[in-house]
Amino acid sequence: MAEGAVAADQLRLFIERIERLEEEKKGIADDIRDVYAEAKATGYDPKIMRMVVRLRKMETHTRQEQDAILETYRSALGLA
C-alpha cells in the first residue's frame, strides 16, 4: 500500500471521528436546552441558572476575586 493511501485513510478516520463527536455534541446541547426549557416551565430563570452553572465551574479563588471586584464596582456606582 502506498504511503499516500495510508495517510489518506488515517485522515479520513480522523474526520469521521470528529463528525461523530460533533453529532454527539449537538445531541447533548439539545438535551441541555430541553432541561433549561423544563426548568423555565417550572418557574426557574434559565439566565440565572446559566450564571450559576458558570460560577460552579470556576475555581473558588477565581470566583471570590470576581465577587470582590464586582462589589467594588457596585459600591463605586452606588449600587450596593
Rank of each mutant, 00 (worst) to 15 (best):
M1G: 13
A2R: 11
E3K: 11
G4P: 09
G4T: 02
A5N: 05
A7I: 00
A8R: 13
L11R: 14
L11K: 12
L11E: 08
R12N: 04
L13V: 01
F14H: 06
F14E: 04
E16N: 07
R17S: 09
R17V: 02
R17E: 08
R20H: 11
L21K: 15
L21I: 09
E23C: 09
K25V: 14
K25P: 10
K26D: 15
G27P: 06
I28H: 08
D30P: 02
D30R: 10
D31K: 12
I32T: 10
I32A: 10
V35L: 15
A37K: 11
E38H: 07
E38K: 08
K40Y: 06
G43P: 01
G43F: 03
D45T: 01
P46Q: 07
P46D: 02
K47A: 15
I48Y: 12
I48W: 05
M49F: 03
M51Y: 11
R54W: 05
L55K: 13
R56Q: 13
E59F: 01
E59P: 07
T60Q: 14
Q64E: 15
E65Y: 08
E65H: 09
E65K: 13
D67V: 05
A68W: 02
I69T: 10
I69A: 05
I69M: 05
I69Q: 08
L70K: 06
E71R: 09
E71H: 08
T72D: 11
Y73P: 00
R74V: 02
R74P: 01
S75F: 01
S75G: 06
A76N: 05
G78I: 02
L79F: 12
L79K: 08
